[in-house]
Design a protein around this nucleic acid. Sequence first.
DNA 1: TAGTGGTCTAGACCACTGA
DNA 2: CAGTGGTCTAGACCACTAG
Lengths: 253, 253
Amino acid sequence: MGTTQLESVPEPKYWHLRTVLSEALDSEFSVGEILPNERDLAARFGVARATLRQALEQLELEGRLQRRRGVGTTVAPPRVGVALGTEQHTWPGAAGDAWQPVDCTTEVPPAAVASALETGAEEPVHTVRRSRRTHGQPVAAELLYVPQPAVPDLSAIDAPSGPARARAVLRELQRLELEGQESAVELGSARADDAKQLDRLPGSPVLVVTTRFNAEGRTTALSVATYRADTCRLTFGDSGGVEIHQGPERQAS
Amino acid sequence: MGTTQLESVPEPKYWHLRTVLSEALDSEFSVGEILPNERDLAARFGVARATLRQALEQLELEGRLQRRRGVGTTVAPPRVGVALGTEQHTWPGAAGDAWQPVDCTTEVPPAAVASALETGAEEPVHTVRRSRRTHGQPVAAELLYVPQPAVPDLSAIDAPSGPARARAVLRELQRLELEGQESAVELGSARADDAKQLDRLPGSPVLVVTTRFNAEGRTTALSVATYRADTCRLTFGDSGGVEIHQGPERQAS
DNA sequence: TAGTGGTCTAGACCACTGA
DNA sequence: CAGTGGTCTAGACCACTAG
């Protein structure tokens, strides 16, 4: 009888905490500022550390916070827009390419890659590893798979691996006429090697961009690029991108 | 002396568990199959339930599992490719549009939206809510913001809100000549209203696609579309998309 | 070495689903 | 109603960073 209907759908604590912290970040903190440590914050809000961490995880996922072990939790800068060239239709390694070759090996690719390239399951392909940086920070790691028949003229002078080999493979790619490309974006978690290259822990959320390059009537190269989901906004289309989702709560009404 | 150098970089338990479970999913389970419950699984692997849950969370993020409260954990089907029309350059609501109008109101938008539309901070805009479904499942929720001056001819006959109003706004949009559009993709977490529309819990990971439509020399519409990150793969370009990242571990070497 | 975030435990209770 | 996943607690120890 005396019980009112308020709180009929109680919000989880960590979700409420996320909202409170988010508003505090907007009004009381500036980019780069260090937050109090997790134990203090948890005590201040009267929750267990695990609950506080659940809220921080959400905010980190949304790109609002950055956490580094042994250092602390800082307010993250707005996400950086990273252009994805879906309209240019140029080969990887063309002039103005934002990527930097790191290494190149020739090995048997994962099964899914082999089937996309329509190569044999046990057939080695050139595997170029590249890195993309913005403002000095690594933002993406890429594996570019190129079947050997696509670049037959790799001279024996080139090293069997290393950055020089990577550049040679990319150079050979430019000879072909690019007929089209298709991309897909999905959420993933960083594998150990990508995580290291991106300066993150394994399992960190990443945006995986898979691009298939078509030439001579077949798939001639396949790129699997892994972008840091916490710091990147992938942009497409006519210009550099749209500036939304900074600032305070984006929810109207 | 007797200590060997093995395990010099001990992998976290939950990460190892994720790998083991992932391989088990590939070899011993089929799509839709129900896994043992969390308490049993944790006991079987000799870890605390929280640790087991951390591994399941990873796999759910990667689209391998689907968890439903009160029901259980099932093996998820491969992600569905969802085409994003960056190349067509057509207005929302054009023929063949995959979206379904749900509602329409006229209200003051969030600050970030107002600045992108270059409207006054307190100026109401038409706000169309739409829904996108695939195979009977909801995959995306959208808010489309249209400044009132862009569609001046909404006759007084139309209802002030509801699906009919939404269709009227979209119809008026088609009269303008679309000059270009820009999109951006980033990771976010579902707000309460979007989560409900997507049949997920608040905070679920989503891919937020922000698209700016240009006409008559200015931004004439702004779409903020929220896709379920667990079930969707966003595709761009010439064809329907690339089939990668199904099957077993995608890591070579 | 002191302080940070990352991992892990063993419990408890709650909200939801379906028989 | 029993069984599921979701939330929360109060601890412990570890890995890393920096002074």
